[in-house]
Design a protein around this nucleic acid. Structure first.
Length: 853
RNA sequence: GGGCGGUUAGCUCAGUUGGCUAGAGCGCGUCUUUGACGUAGACGAGGUCAUAGGUUCGAAUCCUAUACCGCCCACCA
C-alpha cells in the first residue's frame, strides 16, 4: 500500500514538481487540437520574495493554465522577472548607505553593474518560490525585464514615438522626491489628506489709494513667495477691477509684481486674490504659461531654498524657511492671520517625503492619441473585464490623461537612448550607444541623457515582448493582475499594444483584490502583519494555500486571508487522499480484466450524474472566472456526494471499474485547483499511466435519469430515518418495517447499511405497523419504536405539520394568483403545481398519522 | 469636487440575465471506536438579506432615496 494514513504534502510536492518540469508538460504544444491559450505572468520582483498576493495571482493563473491544458489547448504560461527599477534601487541605495557610501561615489555605469550583480545574487529565490506554488509555467521562456529583447523593443518603441512626435523633451513641473532624487509620473504620487494652515499675507500696492493700500493673498506655502511673479484676481471680480495691470510689492523683497486677471482665481475662496508661483505649483505654472510670466525656482532639487530666495533664506530647508518667513512677516506687519484647513499633499510612496513640484527637463509622452484608440477599443467591447465595472473606471481615467513623464533619475533601469548636443541644449538625437558617455555625430559632440525609463514604460509592452518568439500566441488570452494596477499597467498595455501591434494585447482582463490580513487590515512590513506564503505552504501544503486563497473570493474585491479556509482545504486534500486509499484497497481486492464501465445500481447512476453535472458546471464557471464557486462545487462533489453517499454504498456493491473511472475524473477536474495532491495520488495508484497534468478533460457518463431520481429518494429516506434516530429518546436505532414500496424493497441492504438499523422483511399481504414516516412519495415506512416514546414523536410530528402547512399556503397563494399563472414560465408553474400536490399528499399522511399515534 | 464599491447566519464571505425551503467554511449543540479518513462520520440549531419607498405575478437580486463603512481619481490657492 503506497498510501499512508494521512497526506503529507511536504513529502511529495518537490518531487512532483520536478517530474512535471522534466517531462516538458509546461511547454506550449501546437500539435494539440485546441486553440492557443496564453497567460503572461505579471513578473515578480527578481530580487525579492513572493508575498501572499503572488500566491493568489499564481493560483488563479495556474488554475486557468492547467484547466486549458487538460482541455487540450495549446497552452503557454509565460513567467517573468522584473528588475523593478525604483523598488530595487531603493533597496540598493539603503545597502549603499549601510556601507557608508552614496550614489555619488560611483558613475552610472558602475552603479548599474553593482545592482545587476546584487540582483543576480538573489535571483532564483523568487523562481524557487514560484515552483513551490505549483506554477506550471514554461521556464524556457522566462523573460527578465532587462533582457536584450526587452531593451530592443523599448528602444524601437521610443524611436517610433519620437518619429511620430509623441515623445518630446520638455521643461515642466514634475513630481520630485528630494530624498530619492528622482521624478515620478503623476500616478505614482500618493496623495494624503493632511491638516495644514492657510496663511493670509498682505501684498502692499505700489500706488496705494485712499480705499485700498494692499491685497491680501491666501497661501498654504508662504516659503514659496520668493518665487511669486504675479498675483491673480478673477476677471469678473468687481472688487479688484480697477487694480488689474497695476503692481504690488512682494513682501520681504523689493520686487514689484503685476496684478493679473485669470480664471484660476476663485472669487469665493479667501480674499479672491491668489499669488502666482509658476515654478512651484502646477496651477500657477499654467497661469504663468498663459500670461508669459517669468519662472523663478526658489526650492532646489535638494529640497532647500536656492539663492533666488535671497541671502537671508538661501540654504534653509523649506520648513525652516517657512518659519522664518512667517516671523518676518509678523515683524513687518504684513501678516493678516491664519486658519486651519485640510488639504491633500503628495508624498513619495516609498519614503513618504513630500513631493515637490519642480521645474525639470524630462521626456514626456503625449498620451492623448494613444488613449483615444484605447478608449475606442474598450467602448467597442474588444476586451472583457472581470469585474466588469473596471472597464468604465479605466475609460474614465483614459479620458482625463495628462502627458506621461517617463524619465527617472535612477541608475537602475533601461537607459534612455538619447543624446544632447553639448553646444546646443535644444539639439537632441536618438542613439542606442548608451554605454558611451559622449558620441560624435556629424562632427558634433553629444552627451548622453543619464536618465532611465520609468519601468512601466517597458512593462507596458510586456504582452508583445514576451510572446515575440511565438506571435500566434498574441493577443494573449487573459491578463490576470491586481486591481491596483488598472491604470498603472493594464491601461498602458492596452495603449501601447494598440500603438505598436495594431491589436489589443489580451482578450480578457481579470483583476483580483488585495489579500488582507486575518483582521481585514492591509498587510505591511511596518505593521508586522505580513503572511509569508512559503510558511503556509510548508505548514499546510501548496494545494491548501491555493484552495484557501480562492475560496469565497470574487473578482476585484479585497478580502482577508483566512487560515480556517486553508485548513478546510488541507482537510479536503486529506479526504481525497483517503478516498483514493480506500479505492486502491478495493481495487486490489477486486481486480478486473478489462476497464469497461457499466452502471449497475441507483447509486452508480446517481454519482455519474453528479459528476457529469459538476463537469459542465466547473467548465462554465472557469470560463467565466468564477474560481471560488468552481472550487466550492468540487468540494461538495468530493466530500458530500462522492465520499458520503457513493463510496458508502460501494462498500456493499463494488464496481471496480466504475470506482477507478470516477476517481480518475474527480482527480482530473480537481487537478487545476490542487495540482500536487491529485498528481501524487495519480502517481501512486496502481492502474494509472503517465501524468495527470497532461490527461484529458473527462467525458460525461451516460446515465439512467430515473435511477438518479430514485437514489435521491433513497437519500431522503435514509436522512429521514437517521434524523428520527437522533431525535427520538432511547436506543439510537429501531427496526424499519415497510410494505408496498418497490424502491425500499430493492434497497433494503443499502438502507440497513446506511442507517445501521435492521429492515424487517415484508410479509406478503400484510401491512407493516409502527411509527409511520412522513416522506414524500414513500408513505409506508414505519419505525418499530416502543409505545412509551410515541408522545415525543407526536410533538415532533405536530411541529412538522405546522411547517408544512406554511409551505403549502405559500404555494397555494402563488397558484391562486391568476397573474402568476399567466405570466410566469410554464415549467415553473407546473413545478409549483407538482410541489403543491406532493406536499398536500404528505400533509394528509401526516395528519392521518397523528391520529394514529 | 468627480467616480466606484460594500452592508446576507456568531465570524469570514458566496449568491451574474429577478423564480424550488437564501448557501459555504469555521464556530456552536447532541450523538458515533461503521472495511479509507477524528484533518472523520451522523443529526441539528442559527438569517425580517442595512433602512424606507417603488417596479413586478414574484425582489437579497432591478430603480429611487437615506444611514453607516470602504476604495480610487483630481492642478481644492
Amino acid at each position: 500500500m503506497k498510501f499512508s494514513k494521512a497526506y503529507e504534502p511536504n513529502q511529495y510536492e518537490p518531487d512532483i514538481y520536478a517530474l512535471w518540469e522534466k517531462s516538458g508538460a509546461f511547454k506550449p504544444n501546437d500539435t494539440k487540437k485546441g486553440p492557443e491559450y496564453t497567460i503572461v505572468m505579471p513578473p515578480p520582483n527578481a530580487n525579492g520574495n513572493l508575498h501572499i498576493g503572488h500566491g493568489l495571482t499564481i493560483a488563479l493563473e495556474d488554475i486557468l493554465t492547467r484547466y486549458h491544458r487538460l482541455k487540450g489547448d495549446d497552452t503557454w504560461y509565460i513567467p517573468g522577472a522584473d528588475h523593478a527599477g525604483f523598488e530595487t534601487w531603493v533597496v540598493y541605495e539603503r545597502y549603499l548607505e549601510s556601507q557608508g557610501k552614496t550614489r555619488f561615489d560611483y558613475s552610472r555605469d558602475e552603479l548599474y553593474e553593482q545592482v545587476w550583480n546584487f540582483v543576480h545574487e538573489q535571483r532564483g529565490n523568487m523562481e524557487l518560490q514560484l515552483r513551490s506554488l505549483g506554477a506550471s509555467c514554461d521556464w524556457d521562456s522566462l523573460t527578465f525585464t532587462l533582457d536584450n529583447k526587452v531593451v530592443d523593443t523599448v528602444y524601437s518603441t521610443f524611436k517610433k514615438m519620437w518619429d511620430d512626435g509623441l515623445v518630446y523633451r520638455g521643461e515642466k513641473l514634475v513630481n520630485f522626491c528630494t530624498k530619492h532624487q528622482t521624478a515620478f509620473a503623476d500616478i505614482e504620487v500618493t496623495h494624503k489628506d493632511e491638516k495644514g494652515k492657510l496663511w493670509r499675507i498682505a501684498y502692499p500696492l505700489e500706488e496705494p489709494t485712499d480705499e485700498v493700500s494692499e491685497l491680501i493673498v491666501s497661501t498654504t506655502r508662504p516659503e514659496t513667495l520668493f518665487g511669486d511673479t504675479a498675483v491673480a484676481v478673477n476677471p469678473k471680480d468687481k472688487r479688484y477691477e480697477n487694480l488689474i495691470g497695476k503692481k504690488v510689492k512682494l513682501p520681504l523683497t523689493n520686487r514689484l509684481i503685476p496684478i493679473i486677471a485669470d480664471e484660476h482665481a476663485d472669487m469665493e475662496y479667501g480674499t479672491g486674490v491668489v499669488k502666482i508661483t509658476p515654478a512651484h505649483d502646477p496651477n500657477d505654472y499654467e497661469v504663468g504659461q498663459r500670461h508669459n510670466l517669468p519662472m523663478i525656482t526658489v526650492i532646489g532639487f535638494d529640497g532647500n531654498m536656492t539663492p533666488a530666495a535671497g541671502d537671508d533664506y538661501k540654504g534653509l530647508t523649506t520648513e525652516e524657511c517657512r518659519k522664518k518667513v512667517l516671523q518676518d512677516l509678523i515683524d513687518q506687519d504684513l501678516s493678516r492671520g491664519e486658519e486651519e484647513i485640510t488639504h491633500s499633499v503628495g508624498h513619495c510612496y516609498k519614503c513618504d517625503t513630500v513631493i515637490e513640484p519642480l521645474l525639470k527637463e524630462q521626456w514626456f509622452v503625449n498620451l492623448e492619441p494613444l488613449a483615444k484608440r484605447a478608449i475606442e477599443a474598450l467602448e467597442a467591447g474588444k476586451i472583457k473585464f472581470h469585474p466588469a465595472n473596471k472597464k468604465k473606471v479605466l475609460i474614465n481615467y483614459l479620458k482625463n490623461l495628462r502627458d506621461w513623464n517617463i524619465s527617472r533619475q535612477i541608475p537602475w533601469g533601461i537607459p534612455i537612448p538619447a543624446f544632447v548636443n553639448v553646444d546646443d541644449p535644444k539639439d537632441w538625437i536618438y542613439d542606442t550607444r548608451v554605454n558611451e558617455e559622449t558620441i560624435k555625430v556629424n562632427g558634433k559632440t553629444y552627451r548622453r541623457d543619464n536618465d532611465t525609463f520609468d519601468t512601466w514604460f517597458s512593462s507596458g509592452q510586456w504582452p508583445y515582448i514576451t510572446t515575440s518568439d511565438m506571435p500566434h500566441h498574441y493577443p494573449t488570452s487573459v491578463m490576470e493582475t491586481g486591481a491596483d494596477l488598472l491604470f498603472q499597467w493594464v491601461g498602458r498595455m492596452i495603449m501601447l499594444g494598440l500603438y505598436i501591434t495594431d491589436d489589443i494585447p489580451f482578450k480578457d482582463v481579470y483583476m483580483h483584490g488585495m489579500v488582507l490580513d486575518e483582521k481585514g487590515q492591509k498587510m505591511s512590513k511596518s505593521k508586522g502583519n505580513v503572511i509569508n506564503p512559503m510558511e503556509i505552504v510548508s505548514q499546510y501544503g501548496s494545494d491548501a494555500l491555493r484552495l484557501g486563497l480562492i475560496a469565497s473570493r470574487s473578482a476585484g474585491v479585497n478580502q482577508a486571508f483566512s487560515t480556517s479556509k486553508v485548513i478546510a482545504s488541507r482537510n479536503l486534500c486529506n479526504k481525497l487522499w483517503n478516498i483514493s486509499r480506500l479505492i486502491q484497497q478495493i481495487v486490489d481486492e477486486n481486480p478486473t480484466d478489462d476497464s469497461t464501465v457499466e452502471l449497475k445500481n441507483y447509486g452508480e447512476n446517481w454519482i455519474c450524474h453528479q459528476i457529469n453535472q459538476a463537469n459542465r458546471e466547473v467548465q462554465k464557471m472557469l470560463d467565466h472566472y468564477r474560481f471560488a464557486e468552481a472550487g466550492d462545487l468540487l468540494y461538495d462533489l468530493i466530500w458530500n456526494k462522492y465520499a458520503d453517499w457513493f463510496l458508502e454504498s460501494q462498500k456493499l456493491w463494488k464496481n471496480t471499474n466504475l470506482l477507478k473511472s470516477t476517481l480518475e475524473q474527480i482527480l482530473t477536474m480537481l487537478h487545476p485547483f490542487a495540482p500536487f495532491v491529485t498528481e501524487t495520488i495519480w502517481q501512486n495508484l496502481s492502474w494509472t499511466n503517465g501524468m495527470l497534468i497532461v490527461n484529458e478533460w473527462p467525458k460525461t457518463y451516460k446515465v439512467d435519469q430515473e435511477r438518479v431520481a430514485n437514489f435521491e429518494e433513497l437519500i431522503d429516506i435514509v436522512t429521514n430515518i437517521r434524523s428520527h434516530f437522533q431525535s427520538l429518546p432511547g436506543a439510537n436505532s429501531y427496526p424499519i418495517a415497510f410494505h408496498d414500496d418497490e424502491l425500499v424493497y430493492r434497497n433494503q441492504l443499502l438502507i440497513q447499511h446506511l442507517t445501521k438499523a435492521p429492515c424487517v422483511p415484508q410479509i406478503e399481504g400484510k401491512t407493516a405497523t409502527g411509527l409511520r414516516l412522513a416522506i414524500q412519495n414513500h408513505n409506508n415506512i414505519y419505525l418499530q419504536i416502543p409505545e412509551d416514546i410515541h408522545a415525543k414523536y407526536k410533538a415532533n410530528l405536530e411541529d412538522r405539520i405546522l411547517k408544512l402547512g406554511r409551505e403549502i399556503n405559500t404555494l397555494q397563494a402563488r397558484l391562486d394568483n391568476p397573474r402568476y399563472v399567466e405570466k410566469a414560465p410554464v415549467e415553473l408553474v407546473e413545478e409549483s403545481r407538482l410541489a403543491l400536490h406532493d406536499k398536500q399528499k404528505l400533509l394528509d399522511n401526516m395528519k392521518a398519522e397523528l391520529e394514529l399515534v
